[in-house]
Design a protein around this nucleic acid. Structure first.
Lengths: 222, 222
DNA sequence: TGTACATCAGTGAACGCGCGTTCACTGATGTAC
DNA sequence: TGTACATCAGTGAACGCGCGTTCACTGATGTAC
């Protein structure tokens, strides 16, 4: 018994096919090289049908960012579950402090970069177009990033308070953590050859070290 | 008395006109949106003349990166002259350590971000296409970035040794410093509205704080 | 129950446009003898 | 000195192609009466 609701679902399915096709093309050729026709072709519909779903390419782009944002939220929530921050004393040795810090940084970096590998299309879009040429995309990604940063900042604050390890400007730290980890993630997407065994190739390990230094500094600074 | 040499110079001048036109278009529309014809048009030559200078767009792209690299080298050299790193003792208070650290981070960030503002076209290209869709561009930028990172790492090592402040993995620190400062720089290019007075808008100031935390951590960690 | 009408995702033909690339050409310069 | 030839940056016409967009259409579904 097909109905109006089924029709709506069918339409949604086609919209999703368009978005998935676009994400794939985007990872291959870049967002700027997307064309309405190539997306429609890949999604298996006629070029003109595109207009039944989006007014223009950028409208689809914004929908793509929204989807990427959801994935990132999940990623962050999952990372958050694994992050702990055992209490330390300031008089502890740097090695001791690091142990505590790495209980945050390691799950954070590993979860994040794993997600990145699995959802490379979504996240490539997210980070590449942050500074891309489409104003609409930049705005959408900026807003999403801002929310994400705030979320992480709150997590940091909570971790910091519950363990009585003071962390100062959590927003600043949150920004930097995301910068470091996304930069590492992009590096990994661009050079997939690098393996965990390599001296300079263990991108995740190096990301963790970078985060460690940052948080060690933040901890000392108060 | 025009001669063969003058002809060569004329050709070089036209090549430069092409590159400059391309950089401008690139900052407006993105590298992926460049077309041979639009570049030639902006440079004031016939489309077909483009082939007298470059075999294809990407060959010009690589030349653009080489030019950007030179600017970056100058920038780094200029920053290096201003960076100092007064000796500290580990027992000093964090505030003391910070004073010393900021003698490096402030000139570094300020010089870099100033350069970025003046040469925004060159540097937009440099950082945007690092993860772009053209393989040739990615490779060219990766090589250039690698050299730049190494240069900064050597500077750090030298500063660290001459002041007897140990710094550990200078390559890792160098990478992170460039990541932080280029991320801030891109943020500034994309949101030129943010002014030094703003609470969250003082991008340079925030970049310095981020670098401070990183180096404070590196210093403590040994 | 039947008949007329509304909605709407998807279609295929057609349009004008900017693109990359080819080709044979120009006209200024320098070289051989 | 003159004459024939080589080099080479820049040109304009022409090509075939993929693009975004318009338009009138289809055919399945639901609604009014």
């Amino acid at each position: 018994m097909p109905s109006r609701k089924d029709l709506k679902k069918q339409k949604e399915k086609t919209s999703q096919a368009l978005i998935q096709a676009a994400l794939q093309l985007c990872a291959e050729e870049g967002y700027a090289s997307l064309s309405l026709r190539s997306v429609a072709r890949k999604a298996g519909i006629a070029p003109t049908s595109f207009y039944r779903h989006f007014r223009e390419i950028d409208e689809m782009g914004v929908a793509m960012v929204a989807q990427a944002k959801e994935v990132m939220d999940n990623c962050l929530a999952q990372a958050r579950k694994k992050m702990t921050f055992p209490a330390i004393k300031k008089s502890d040795s740097p090695a001791h402090l690091l142990k505590s810090i790495e209980c945050m940084t390691r799950p954070f970096a590993e979860t994040f970069i794993n997600f990145l590998k699995k959802n490379n299309q979504l996240l490539h879009l997210f980070f590449q177009e942050r500074t891309g040429s489409s104003e609409a995309m930049r705005k959408a990604i900026f807003d999403a990033t801002d929310q994400l940063t705030e979320l992480l900042a709150e997590d940091l604050k909570q971790l910091s308070e519950s363990s009585k390890n003071k962390l100062g400007d959590v927003r600043l730290i949150s920004e930097t953590m995301l910068t470091i980890v996304s930069s590492s993630g992009m590096e990994m997407l661009v050079h997939p050859k690098a393996k965990p065994g390599d001296i300079t190739g263990d991108i995740t390990g190096r990301a963790i070290q970078k985060l460690n230094l940052l948080l060690l500094g933040a901890l000392i600074y108060e």
